[in-house]
Design a protein around this nucleic acid. Sequence first.
DNA 1: AAATGTGAATGCGTTCACAGCA
DNA 2: TGCTGTGAACGCATTCACATTT
Lengths: 274, 274
Amino acid sequence: MATGRTHRPATRSRGIPEATVARLPLYLRALTALSERSVPTVSSEELAAAAGVNSAKLRKDFSYLGSYGTRGVGYDVEYLVYQISRELGLTQDWPVVIVGIGNLGAALAGYGGFASRGFRVAALIDADPAMTGKPVAGIPVQHSDDLEKIIEEDGVSIGVIATPAGVAQQVCDRLVAAGVTSILNFAPTVLSVPDGVDVRKVDLSIELQILAFHEQRKAGEEAGADSGTAPPAAYQAGEPAASGDSAPSGGGSAAGGKGGRKGPDGDVPAVMPA
Amino acid sequence: MATGRTHRPATRSRGIPEATVARLPLYLRALTALSERSVPTVSSEELAAAAGVNSAKLRKDFSYLGSYGTRGVGYDVEYLVYQISRELGLTQDWPVVIVGIGNLGAALAGYGGFASRGFRVAALIDADPAMTGKPVAGIPVQHSDDLEKIIEEDGVSIGVIATPAGVAQQVCDRLVAAGVTSILNFAPTVLSVPDGVDVRKVDLSIELQILAFHEQRKAGEEAGADSGTAPPAAYQAGEPAASGDSAPSGGGSAAGGKGGRKGPDGDVPAVMPA
DNA sequence: AAATGTGAATGCGTTCACAGCA
DNA sequence: TGCTGTGAACGCATTCACATTT
Protein backbone atom coordinates (compact mmCIF):
# COMPACT_ATOMS: atom_id res chain seq x y z
CA MET A 1 0.00 0.00 0.00
CA ALA A 2 2.77 2.28 -0.27
CA THR A 3 1.26 4.42 2.25
CA GLY A 4 -1.63 2.51 3.37
CA ARG A 5 -0.48 3.25 6.76
CA THR A 6 -3.58 4.99 7.55
CA HIS A 7 -5.25 1.72 7.67
CA ARG A 8 -8.58 2.62 9.04
CA PRO A 9 -11.13 0.25 10.42
CA ALA A 10 -12.54 -0.27 7.03
CA THR A 11 -15.83 1.23 7.88
CA ARG A 12 -14.48 4.68 7.76
CA SER A 13 -16.74 6.14 5.18
CA ARG A 14 -19.60 5.19 7.41
CA GLY A 15 -21.08 8.57 8.09
CA ILE A 16 -19.67 11.51 6.28
CA PRO A 17 -21.44 14.50 7.77
CA GLU A 18 -24.06 15.96 5.50
CA ALA A 19 -22.42 19.36 5.65
CA THR A 20 -19.23 17.83 4.38
CA VAL A 21 -20.97 16.01 1.56
CA ALA A 22 -22.47 19.30 0.45
CA ARG A 23 -19.02 20.80 0.14
CA LEU A 24 -17.34 17.97 -1.71
CA PRO A 25 -18.65 19.16 -5.09
CA LEU A 26 -17.16 22.56 -4.33
CA TYR A 27 -13.77 21.09 -3.65
CA LEU A 28 -14.07 18.94 -6.70
CA ARG A 29 -14.75 21.91 -8.91
CA ALA A 30 -11.76 23.79 -7.54
CA LEU A 31 -9.57 20.74 -7.93
CA THR A 32 -10.70 20.18 -11.48
CA ALA A 33 -9.69 23.71 -12.33
CA LEU A 34 -6.27 23.12 -10.81
CA SER A 35 -6.00 19.86 -12.65
CA GLU A 36 -6.67 21.59 -15.92
CA ARG A 37 -3.82 23.94 -15.20
CA SER A 38 -1.66 20.92 -14.43
CA VAL A 39 -1.01 21.99 -10.89
CA PRO A 40 0.37 18.91 -9.15
CA THR A 41 -0.32 19.66 -5.49
CA VAL A 42 -2.18 22.14 -3.30
CA SER A 43 -2.11 23.02 0.33
CA SER A 44 -5.30 23.10 2.34
CA GLU A 45 -4.87 26.85 2.51
CA GLU A 46 -4.78 27.34 -1.24
CA LEU A 47 -7.53 24.91 -2.03
CA ALA A 48 -9.74 26.34 0.66
CA ALA A 49 -9.35 29.80 -0.80
CA ALA A 50 -10.27 28.51 -4.24
CA ALA A 51 -13.34 26.80 -2.88
CA GLY A 52 -14.39 29.69 -0.73
CA VAL A 53 -14.13 28.02 2.66
CA ASN A 54 -11.58 28.15 5.43
CA SER A 55 -8.73 25.74 5.62
CA ALA A 56 -9.57 24.15 8.95
CA LYS A 57 -12.95 23.19 7.67
CA LEU A 58 -11.47 21.75 4.52
CA ARG A 59 -8.97 19.64 6.41
CA LYS A 60 -11.65 18.38 8.70
CA ASP A 61 -13.81 17.51 5.73
CA PHE A 62 -11.03 15.59 4.06
CA SER A 63 -10.26 13.78 7.25
CA TYR A 64 -13.64 12.07 6.97
CA LEU A 65 -12.62 10.65 3.63
CA GLY A 66 -9.32 9.35 4.84
CA SER A 67 -5.77 10.56 5.05
CA TYR A 68 -5.21 11.66 1.53
CA GLY A 69 -2.67 14.39 2.10
CA THR A 70 1.03 14.51 2.78
CA ARG A 71 2.22 16.48 5.78
CA GLY A 72 4.57 19.24 4.93
CA VAL A 73 3.47 19.09 1.31
CA GLY A 74 -0.26 19.19 0.71
CA TYR A 75 -2.66 17.22 -1.42
CA ASP A 76 -2.02 15.59 -4.74
CA VAL A 77 -4.53 17.17 -7.07
CA GLU A 78 -5.23 14.23 -9.35
CA TYR A 79 -5.46 11.82 -6.51
CA LEU A 80 -7.97 13.95 -4.67
CA VAL A 81 -10.04 14.50 -7.78
CA TYR A 82 -10.34 10.80 -8.12
CA GLN A 83 -11.08 10.12 -4.48
CA ILE A 84 -13.76 12.77 -4.24
CA SER A 85 -15.31 11.73 -7.53
CA ARG A 86 -15.49 8.22 -6.30
CA GLU A 87 -16.92 9.21 -2.96
CA LEU A 88 -19.63 11.21 -4.70
CA GLY A 89 -20.40 8.37 -7.03
CA LEU A 90 -19.33 10.26 -10.11
CA THR A 91 -17.24 7.45 -11.46
CA GLN A 92 -20.42 5.91 -12.68
CA ASP A 93 -22.99 7.12 -15.12
CA TRP A 94 -26.21 8.61 -13.81
CA PRO A 95 -29.10 8.79 -16.24
CA VAL A 96 -31.47 11.59 -15.33
CA VAL A 97 -34.95 12.45 -16.54
CA ILE A 98 -36.29 15.98 -16.62
CA VAL A 99 -40.04 16.28 -16.32
CA GLY A 100 -41.70 19.50 -17.39
CA ILE A 101 -40.12 21.06 -20.43
CA GLY A 102 -41.18 24.65 -20.10
CA ASN A 103 -38.74 27.52 -20.03
CA LEU A 104 -36.96 26.19 -17.03
CA GLY A 105 -36.95 22.56 -18.05
CA ALA A 106 -35.56 23.50 -21.43
CA ALA A 107 -32.85 25.59 -19.83
CA LEU A 108 -31.93 22.69 -17.57
CA ALA A 109 -31.82 20.33 -20.53
CA GLY A 110 -29.30 22.60 -22.16
CA TYR A 111 -27.28 23.26 -19.07
CA GLY A 112 -23.72 22.15 -19.57
CA GLY A 113 -23.11 21.30 -15.96
CA PHE A 114 -25.60 18.53 -16.31
CA ALA A 115 -23.73 16.58 -18.85
CA SER A 116 -20.35 17.36 -17.49
CA ARG A 117 -20.01 15.20 -14.43
CA GLY A 118 -21.35 11.78 -14.97
CA PHE A 119 -24.91 12.93 -15.39
CA ARG A 120 -26.63 12.16 -18.63
CA VAL A 121 -30.00 13.44 -19.68
CA ALA A 122 -31.76 10.20 -20.48
CA ALA A 123 -35.07 11.77 -21.36
CA LEU A 124 -37.14 14.92 -21.44
CA ILE A 125 -40.76 14.41 -20.53
CA ASP A 126 -43.72 16.71 -20.88
CA ALA A 127 -47.47 16.32 -20.61
CA ASP A 128 -48.22 18.57 -23.56
CA PRO A 129 -48.80 16.47 -26.69
CA ALA A 130 -47.72 19.42 -28.79
CA MET A 131 -44.25 19.08 -27.33
CA THR A 132 -43.89 15.40 -28.04
CA GLY A 133 -41.17 14.68 -30.51
CA LYS A 134 -39.94 18.22 -30.57
CA PRO A 135 -36.22 18.32 -29.92
CA VAL A 136 -35.02 20.43 -27.03
CA ALA A 137 -31.31 20.81 -26.61
CA GLY A 138 -30.99 18.06 -29.16
CA ILE A 139 -33.15 15.61 -27.28
CA PRO A 140 -36.67 14.79 -28.42
CA VAL A 141 -39.34 15.37 -25.83
CA GLN A 142 -41.38 12.34 -24.87
CA HIS A 143 -44.90 12.26 -23.63
CA SER A 144 -45.56 11.72 -19.98
CA ASP A 145 -47.69 8.70 -20.72
CA ASP A 146 -44.44 6.89 -21.27
CA LEU A 147 -42.84 8.06 -18.07
CA GLU A 148 -42.84 4.69 -16.34
CA LYS A 149 -41.54 2.86 -19.35
CA ILE A 150 -38.68 5.30 -19.84
CA ILE A 151 -37.59 5.13 -16.25
CA GLU A 152 -37.65 1.41 -16.07
CA GLU A 153 -35.94 0.82 -19.36
CA ASP A 154 -33.13 3.23 -18.70
CA GLY A 155 -32.75 2.36 -15.04
CA VAL A 156 -33.17 5.99 -14.10
CA SER A 157 -32.86 6.70 -10.42
CA ILE A 158 -32.64 10.49 -10.46
CA GLY A 159 -35.50 12.70 -11.59
CA VAL A 160 -35.73 16.44 -12.00
CA ILE A 161 -39.12 18.07 -11.61
CA ALA A 162 -39.57 21.34 -13.46
CA THR A 163 -43.32 21.32 -13.79
CA PRO A 164 -45.82 23.81 -12.44
CA ALA A 165 -46.41 23.44 -8.72
CA GLY A 166 -49.88 22.08 -9.21
CA VAL A 167 -48.79 18.83 -10.78
CA ALA A 168 -45.46 18.37 -9.06
CA GLN A 169 -46.74 15.97 -6.42
CA GLN A 170 -48.40 13.64 -8.88
CA VAL A 171 -45.36 13.67 -11.11
CA CYS A 172 -43.30 12.91 -8.06
CA ASP A 173 -45.54 10.02 -7.11
CA ARG A 174 -45.26 8.52 -10.55
CA LEU A 175 -41.51 8.91 -10.60
CA VAL A 176 -41.18 7.23 -7.25
CA ALA A 177 -43.55 4.43 -8.16
CA ALA A 178 -41.50 3.80 -11.26
CA GLY A 179 -38.29 3.48 -9.31
CA VAL A 180 -36.77 6.92 -8.95
CA THR A 181 -35.22 7.39 -5.53
CA SER A 182 -33.65 10.83 -5.81
CA ILE A 183 -35.49 13.95 -6.85
CA LEU A 184 -34.38 17.45 -7.58
CA ASN A 185 -37.44 19.64 -7.28
CA PHE A 186 -37.73 23.05 -8.93
CA ALA A 187 -41.44 23.40 -8.36
CA PRO A 188 -42.36 25.66 -5.46
CA THR A 189 -44.06 22.95 -3.45
CA VAL A 190 -43.28 20.65 -0.61
CA LEU A 191 -43.13 17.13 -1.94
CA SER A 192 -43.93 14.19 0.21
CA VAL A 193 -42.14 10.99 -0.54
CA PRO A 194 -41.73 7.63 1.15
CA ASP A 195 -38.73 6.83 3.26
CA GLY A 196 -35.69 6.06 1.27
CA VAL A 197 -36.34 8.69 -1.34
CA ASP A 198 -34.24 11.84 -1.25
CA VAL A 199 -35.57 15.18 -2.30
CA ARG A 200 -33.58 18.34 -2.75
CA LYS A 201 -35.28 21.53 -3.70
CA VAL A 202 -34.17 24.56 -5.57
CA ASP A 203 -36.44 27.51 -5.13
CA LEU A 204 -35.68 30.77 -6.72
CA SER A 205 -38.27 32.69 -4.91
CA ILE A 206 -37.03 31.50 -1.55
CA GLU A 207 -33.49 32.54 -2.31
CA LEU A 208 -34.64 35.99 -3.27
CA GLN A 209 -36.69 36.33 -0.14
CA ILE A 210 -33.72 35.46 2.00
CA LEU A 211 -31.68 38.09 0.21
CA ALA A 212 -34.45 40.60 0.70
CA PHE A 213 -34.43 39.93 4.41
CA HIS A 214 -30.77 40.81 4.71
CA GLU A 215 -31.08 43.66 2.27
CA GLN A 216 -33.79 45.20 4.36
CA ARG A 217 -31.63 44.90 7.41
CA LYS A 218 -28.79 46.71 5.71
CA ALA A 219 -31.06 49.52 4.63
CA GLY A 220 -32.38 49.87 8.13
CA GLU A 221 -28.93 50.03 9.61
CA GLU A 222 -27.49 52.62 7.37
CA ALA A 223 -30.50 54.79 7.66
CA GLY A 224 -30.02 54.92 11.36
CA ALA A 225 -33.51 55.29 12.54
CA ASP A 226 -36.31 53.22 11.35
CA SER A 227 -37.21 54.44 7.91
CA GLY A 228 -38.30 50.96 7.11
CA THR A 229 -41.47 49.91 5.56
CA ALA A 230 -44.34 52.20 5.17
CA PRO A 231 -46.71 51.41 7.94
CA PRO A 232 -49.67 49.77 6.34
CA ALA A 233 -53.02 50.85 7.51
CA ALA A 234 -54.29 47.34 7.41
CA TYR A 235 -51.77 44.62 7.15
CA GLN A 236 -53.92 42.49 5.02
CA ALA A 237 -53.90 44.81 2.10
CA GLY A 238 -50.25 44.41 1.60
CA GLU A 239 -50.02 41.14 -0.24
CA PRO A 240 -48.78 41.12 -3.78
CA ALA A 241 -51.37 38.77 -4.99
CA ALA A 242 -49.66 37.27 -7.95
CA SER A 243 -51.96 34.51 -8.90
CA GLY A 244 -55.49 34.32 -7.73
CA ASP A 245 -55.99 37.60 -6.03
CA SER A 246 -57.53 36.00 -3.05
CA ALA A 247 -60.02 38.29 -1.60
CA PRO A 248 -58.66 38.95 1.77
CA SER A 249 -60.92 36.91 3.84
CA GLY A 250 -61.71 40.01 5.58
CA GLY A 251 -61.87 38.81 9.03
CA GLY A 252 -62.40 41.48 11.54
CA SER A 253 -59.10 43.19 11.23
CA ALA A 254 -60.49 46.33 12.55
CA ALA A 255 -57.15 47.42 13.74
CA GLY A 256 -56.84 48.70 17.13
CA GLY A 257 -55.88 45.80 19.29
CA LYS A 258 -52.68 46.08 21.16
CA GLY A 259 -49.82 44.50 19.45
CA GLY A 260 -47.92 41.42 20.24
CA ARG A 261 -45.49 42.13 22.96
CA LYS A 262 -42.31 42.47 21.11
CA GLY A 263 -42.74 44.32 17.90
CA PRO A 264 -39.22 44.53 16.62
CA ASP A 265 -39.77 48.16 16.08
CA GLY A 266 -42.48 50.48 16.89
CA ASP A 267 -44.21 49.13 13.91
CA VAL A 268 -47.87 48.91 13.57
CA PRO A 269 -49.27 46.08 15.56
CA ALA A 270 -52.46 46.47 13.74
CA VAL A 271 -54.63 43.63 14.73
CA MET A 272 -54.27 40.84 17.09
CA PRO A 273 -55.57 37.46 16.36
CA ALA A 274 -58.64 36.35 18.12
CA MET B 1 -22.04 37.19 6.01
CA ALA B 2 -21.87 38.66 9.28
CA THR B 3 -18.17 39.28 9.37
CA GLY B 4 -17.41 39.04 12.97
CA ARG B 5 -17.60 42.72 13.51
CA THR B 6 -21.05 43.56 14.45
CA HIS B 7 -21.15 47.14 13.58
CA ARG B 8 -23.57 47.87 16.26
CA PRO B 9 -26.91 46.70 17.35
CA ALA B 10 -28.38 49.41 15.25
CA THR B 11 -31.85 48.10 15.10
CA ARG B 12 -33.30 46.23 17.96
CA SER B 13 -31.30 43.25 18.99
CA ARG B 14 -33.40 41.26 16.64
CA GLY B 15 -31.21 38.28 16.06
CA ILE B 16 -33.25 35.93 14.01
CA PRO B 17 -31.17 32.81 13.38
CA GLU B 18 -30.16 32.30 9.80
CA ALA B 19 -31.79 28.89 9.73
CA THR B 20 -35.04 30.45 10.75
CA VAL B 21 -34.83 33.15 8.12
CA ALA B 22 -34.36 30.46 5.51
CA ARG B 23 -37.60 28.84 6.56
CA LEU B 24 -39.75 31.93 6.72
CA PRO B 25 -40.42 31.88 2.97
CA LEU B 26 -41.60 28.32 3.35
CA TYR B 27 -44.06 29.23 6.04
CA LEU B 28 -45.16 32.20 4.03
CA ARG B 29 -45.94 30.07 1.03
CA ALA B 30 -47.98 27.64 3.09
CA LEU B 31 -49.81 30.49 4.78
CA THR B 32 -50.57 32.15 1.48
CA ALA B 33 -52.16 28.96 0.27
CA LEU B 34 -54.29 28.82 3.40
CA SER B 35 -55.19 32.44 3.00
CA GLU B 36 -56.41 31.81 -0.52
CA ARG B 37 -58.66 29.12 0.82
CA SER B 38 -59.89 31.58 3.41
CA VAL B 39 -58.75 29.48 6.30
CA PRO B 40 -58.80 31.79 9.31
CA THR B 41 -56.43 30.05 11.70
CA VAL B 42 -53.95 27.21 11.82
CA SER B 43 -52.26 25.27 14.54
CA SER B 44 -48.50 24.87 14.56
CA GLU B 45 -49.08 21.23 13.81
CA GLU B 46 -51.08 21.84 10.67
CA LEU B 47 -48.92 24.62 9.36
CA ALA B 48 -45.78 22.64 10.03
CA ALA B 49 -47.13 19.74 8.02
CA ALA B 50 -47.96 22.06 5.14
CA ALA B 51 -44.49 23.54 5.21
CA GLY B 52 -42.73 20.24 5.60
CA VAL B 53 -41.11 20.83 8.98
CA ASN B 54 -41.94 19.67 12.46
CA SER B 55 -44.10 21.69 14.76
CA ALA B 56 -41.57 22.29 17.50
CA LYS B 57 -39.23 23.88 15.03
CA LEU B 58 -41.98 26.04 13.64
CA ARG B 59 -43.03 27.28 17.05
CA LYS B 60 -39.47 28.05 17.94
CA ASP B 61 -39.02 29.91 14.68
CA PHE B 62 -42.09 32.01 15.28
CA SER B 63 -41.02 32.74 18.79
CA TYR B 64 -38.12 34.73 17.36
CA LEU B 65 -40.55 36.98 15.58
CA GLY B 66 -42.71 37.60 18.61
CA SER B 67 -45.74 36.10 20.21
CA TYR B 68 -48.07 36.01 17.30
CA GLY B 69 -50.19 33.02 18.22
CA THR B 70 -53.04 32.37 20.58
CA ARG B 71 -52.71 29.55 23.06
CA GLY B 72 -55.33 26.95 22.73
CA VAL B 73 -56.23 28.22 19.29
CA GLY B 74 -53.35 28.64 16.87
CA TYR B 75 -52.19 31.38 14.56
CA ASP B 76 -54.27 33.86 12.65
CA VAL B 77 -53.41 33.24 9.03
CA GLU B 78 -53.74 36.77 7.68
CA TYR B 79 -51.92 38.25 10.58
CA LEU B 80 -49.00 35.87 10.21
CA VAL B 81 -48.83 36.42 6.47
CA TYR B 82 -48.42 40.08 7.12
CA GLN B 83 -45.89 39.70 9.92
CA ILE B 84 -43.69 37.33 7.98
CA SER B 85 -43.93 39.41 4.83
CA ARG B 86 -42.85 42.41 6.77
CA GLU B 87 -40.03 40.60 8.46
CA LEU B 88 -38.76 39.42 5.11
CA GLY B 89 -39.01 42.87 3.65
CA LEU B 90 -41.65 41.89 1.14
CA THR B 91 -43.91 44.78 1.90
CA GLN B 92 -41.66 46.85 -0.23
CA ASP B 93 -40.79 46.63 -3.86
CA TRP B 94 -37.49 45.08 -4.85
CA PRO B 95 -36.25 45.83 -8.33
CA VAL B 96 -33.99 43.08 -9.61
CA VAL B 97 -31.70 42.89 -12.60
CA ILE B 98 -30.86 39.67 -14.36
CA VAL B 99 -27.52 39.58 -16.10
CA GLY B 100 -26.91 36.98 -18.75
CA ILE B 101 -29.93 36.22 -20.87
CA GLY B 102 -29.14 32.78 -22.15
CA ASN B 103 -31.43 29.83 -21.70
CA LEU B 104 -31.35 30.08 -17.96
CA GLY B 105 -31.57 33.85 -17.75
CA ALA B 106 -34.56 33.81 -20.06
CA ALA B 107 -36.24 31.14 -17.98
CA LEU B 108 -35.65 33.18 -14.86
CA ALA B 109 -37.06 36.26 -16.50
CA GLY B 110 -40.24 34.39 -17.23
CA TYR B 111 -40.47 32.70 -13.89
CA GLY B 112 -43.67 33.62 -12.17
CA GLY B 113 -42.30 33.37 -8.68
CA PHE B 114 -40.11 36.29 -9.45
CA ALA B 115 -42.83 38.75 -9.99
CA SER B 116 -45.08 37.35 -7.39
CA ARG B 117 -43.69 38.51 -4.12
CA GLY B 118 -42.54 42.06 -4.24
CA PHE B 119 -39.79 41.32 -6.71
CA ARG B 120 -39.88 43.14 -10.00
CA VAL B 121 -37.62 42.45 -12.93
CA ALA B 122 -36.26 45.92 -13.53
CA ALA B 123 -33.99 44.96 -16.38
CA LEU B 124 -32.50 42.14 -18.39
CA ILE B 125 -28.90 42.65 -19.34
CA ASP B 126 -26.73 40.81 -21.79
CA ALA B 127 -23.36 41.40 -23.36
CA ASP B 128 -24.40 40.17 -26.78
CA PRO B 129 -25.32 43.13 -29.01
CA ALA B 130 -27.55 40.84 -31.02
CA MET B 131 -29.77 40.46 -27.97
CA THR B 132 -30.14 44.16 -27.32
CA GLY B 133 -33.68 45.32 -27.72
CA LYS B 134 -35.03 41.86 -28.17
CA PRO B 135 -37.89 41.25 -25.79
CA VAL B 136 -37.63 38.31 -23.45
CA ALA B 137 -40.64 37.51 -21.34
CA GLY B 138 -41.97 40.86 -22.43
CA ILE B 139 -38.97 42.83 -21.30
CA PRO B 140 -36.47 44.23 -23.77
CA VAL B 141 -32.89 43.14 -23.20
CA GLN B 142 -30.44 45.94 -22.59
CA HIS B 143 -26.77 45.94 -23.34
CA SER B 144 -24.31 45.45 -20.55
CA ASP B 145 -22.61 48.73 -21.36
CA ASP B 146 -25.53 50.34 -19.63
CA LEU B 147 -25.36 48.17 -16.56
CA GLU B 148 -24.21 50.87 -14.20
CA LYS B 149 -26.69 53.40 -15.45
CA ILE B 150 -29.59 50.99 -15.10
CA ILE B 151 -28.69 50.02 -11.58
CA GLU B 152 -28.24 53.53 -10.41
CA GLU B 153 -31.34 54.91 -12.02
CA ASP B 154 -33.60 52.20 -10.75
CA GLY B 155 -32.00 51.91 -7.36
CA VAL B 156 -31.45 48.22 -7.85
CA SER B 157 -29.91 46.44 -4.92
CA ILE B 158 -30.43 42.83 -5.93
CA GLY B 159 -28.73 41.27 -8.93
CA VAL B 160 -29.04 37.83 -10.46
CA ILE B 161 -26.06 36.44 -12.32
CA ALA B 162 -26.89 33.89 -15.00
CA THR B 163 -23.83 34.31 -17.16
CA PRO B 164 -21.19 31.74 -18.05
CA ALA B 165 -18.78 31.10 -15.20
CA GLY B 166 -15.95 32.81 -16.99
CA VAL B 167 -17.41 36.26 -16.76
CA ALA B 168 -19.36 35.94 -13.55
CA GLN B 169 -16.74 37.56 -11.35
CA GLN B 170 -16.39 40.62 -13.53
CA VAL B 171 -20.12 41.00 -13.81
CA CYS B 172 -20.29 40.67 -10.06
CA ASP B 173 -17.64 43.34 -9.60
CA ARG B 174 -19.51 45.75 -11.82
CA LEU B 175 -22.78 45.09 -10.07
CA VAL B 176 -21.24 45.70 -6.70
CA ALA B 177 -19.42 48.81 -7.84
CA ALA B 178 -22.70 50.16 -9.13
CA GLY B 179 -24.43 49.63 -5.84
CA VAL B 180 -25.83 46.12 -5.77
CA THR B 181 -25.48 44.57 -2.34
CA SER B 182 -27.24 41.23 -2.77
CA ILE B 183 -26.44 38.72 -5.45
CA LEU B 184 -28.04 35.49 -6.49
CA ASN B 185 -25.44 33.54 -8.40
CA PHE B 186 -26.30 30.81 -10.87
CA ALA B 187 -22.85 30.61 -12.39
CA PRO B 188 -20.77 27.69 -11.13
CA THR B 189 -18.08 29.84 -9.59
CA VAL B 190 -17.12 31.15 -6.21
CA LEU B 191 -17.64 34.88 -6.23
CA SER B 192 -15.63 37.13 -4.03
CA VAL B 193 -17.30 40.25 -2.82
CA PRO B 194 -16.52 42.94 -0.28
CA ASP B 195 -17.95 42.84 3.21
CA GLY B 196 -21.52 43.91 3.36
CA VAL B 197 -22.49 42.21 0.14
CA ASP B 198 -24.49 39.00 0.38
CA VAL B 199 -24.15 36.23 -2.13
CA ARG B 200 -26.35 33.20 -2.39
CA LYS B 201 -25.62 30.57 -4.93
CA VAL B 202 -27.75 28.11 -6.77
CA ASP B 203 -25.82 25.35 -8.39
CA LEU B 204 -27.54 22.63 -10.26
CA SER B 205 -24.56 20.49 -10.65
CA ILE B 206 -23.83 20.56 -6.94
CA GLU B 207 -27.35 19.50 -6.07
CA LEU B 208 -27.13 16.59 -8.43
CA GLN B 209 -23.81 15.51 -7.02
CA ILE B 210 -25.22 15.50 -3.53
CA LEU B 211 -28.08 13.34 -4.72
CA ALA B 212 -25.66 11.03 -6.46
CA PHE B 213 -23.75 10.57 -3.24
CA HIS B 214 -26.81 9.36 -1.40
CA GLU B 215 -28.01 7.38 -4.36
CA GLN B 216 -24.75 5.55 -4.50
CA ARG B 217 -25.02 4.74 -0.84
CA LYS B 218 -28.45 3.28 -1.30
CA ALA B 219 -27.33 1.14 -4.20
CA GLY B 220 -24.35 -0.10 -2.28
CA GLU B 221 -26.43 -1.07 0.69
CA GLU B 222 -29.06 -2.97 -1.16
CA ALA B 223 -26.59 -4.72 -3.39
CA GLY B 224 -24.52 -5.95 -0.53
CA ALA B 225 -20.90 -6.56 -1.20
CA ASP B 226 -20.99 -6.17 -4.90
CA SER B 227 -18.21 -5.47 -7.24
CA GLY B 228 -15.53 -3.21 -6.03
CA THR B 229 -14.69 0.07 -7.44
CA ALA B 230 -13.04 -0.26 -10.74
CA PRO B 231 -9.49 0.52 -9.89
CA PRO B 232 -8.40 3.49 -11.83
CA ALA B 233 -5.92 2.54 -14.41
CA ALA B 234 -3.74 5.39 -13.50
CA TYR B 235 -5.33 8.52 -12.42
CA GLN B 236 -2.16 10.29 -11.95
CA ALA B 237 -0.03 9.24 -14.76
CA GLY B 238 1.87 12.10 -16.14
CA GLU B 239 -1.08 13.95 -17.38
CA PRO B 240 -4.41 14.92 -16.05
CA ALA B 241 -6.57 11.89 -16.16
CA ALA B 242 -9.60 13.62 -17.42
CA SER B 243 -8.61 17.08 -18.26
CA GLY B 244 -10.60 18.83 -20.83
CA ASP B 245 -14.03 18.67 -19.47
CA SER B 246 -16.42 16.09 -18.38
CA ALA B 247 -14.53 13.60 -16.44
CA PRO B 248 -15.89 10.15 -16.73
CA SER B 249 -18.05 10.40 -19.76
CA GLY B 250 -16.72 8.88 -22.86
CA GLY B 251 -16.40 5.21 -23.40
CA GLY B 252 -15.07 3.21 -20.53
CA SER B 253 -17.15 2.59 -17.54
CA ALA B 254 -19.91 1.00 -19.50
CA ALA B 255 -22.12 0.06 -16.66
CA GLY B 256 -25.60 0.71 -17.80
CA GLY B 257 -27.92 2.32 -15.40
CA LYS B 258 -27.72 2.15 -11.70
CA GLY B 259 -26.23 -1.00 -10.42
CA GLY B 260 -24.38 -0.27 -7.29
CA ARG B 261 -20.82 -0.23 -6.44
CA LYS B 262 -19.28 1.23 -3.48
CA GLY B 263 -17.51 -1.18 -1.35
CA PRO B 264 -18.01 0.35 2.01
CA ASP B 265 -14.34 0.00 2.58
CA GLY B 266 -13.22 0.10 -0.97
CA ASP B 267 -9.99 1.54 0.13
CA VAL B 268 -8.08 0.92 -2.99
CA PRO B 269 -5.10 3.02 -2.12
CA ALA B 270 -3.66 2.09 -5.39
CA VAL B 271 -1.24 4.84 -5.87
CA MET B 272 -0.28 7.48 -3.48
CA PRO B 273 0.86 10.94 -4.11
CA ALA B 274 4.46 11.78 -3.82
C1' DA C 1 10.06 24.08 8.35
C1' DA C 2 5.84 23.24 6.58
C1' DA C 3 1.44 21.51 6.48
C1' DT C 4 -1.69 17.71 7.64
C1' DG C 5 -4.85 15.37 10.87
C1' DT C 6 -7.47 15.62 14.94
C1' DG C 7 -8.92 16.06 20.03
C1' DA C 8 -11.05 19.70 22.52
C1' DA C 9 -13.67 23.82 22.83
C1' DT C 10 -17.17 26.43 21.15
C1' DG C 11 -21.32 27.73 18.79
C1' DC C 12 -25.56 26.88 16.36
C1' DG C 13 -29.73 24.46 15.47
C1' DT C 14 -33.08 21.00 16.71
C1' DT C 15 -35.80 18.49 19.76
C1' DC C 16 -37.86 17.63 24.18
C1' DA C 17 -41.03 18.41 27.52
C1' DC C 18 -43.72 21.16 30.16
C1' DA C 19 -45.21 25.64 32.22
C1' DG C 20 -48.45 29.06 31.05
C1' DC C 21 -52.36 30.91 28.99
C1' DA C 22 -56.91 31.22 26.39
C1' DT D 1 -58.82 20.99 27.49
C1' DG D 2 -55.77 22.47 23.70
C1' DC D 3 -52.09 24.64 21.93
C1' DT D 4 -48.48 28.10 22.23
C1' DG D 5 -44.00 29.68 23.93
C1' DT D 6 -39.68 28.53 25.81
C1' DG D 7 -35.90 26.82 29.04
C1' DA D 8 -33.02 22.89 28.94
C1' DA D 9 -30.93 18.93 26.81
C1' DC D 10 -28.97 17.22 22.98
C1' DG D 11 -26.46 16.66 18.68
C1' DC D 12 -24.16 18.41 14.72
C1' DA D 13 -20.93 21.70 12.65
C1' DT D 14 -17.20 24.91 12.97
C1' DT D 15 -13.13 26.59 14.83
C1' DC D 16 -9.04 26.36 17.60
C1' DA D 17 -4.65 24.86 18.54
C1' DC D 18 -1.14 21.65 18.48
C1' DA D 19 0.97 17.03 18.17
C1' DT D 20 2.49 14.52 14.26
C1' DT D 21 4.65 13.55 10.12
C1' DT D 22 7.38 14.33 5.92
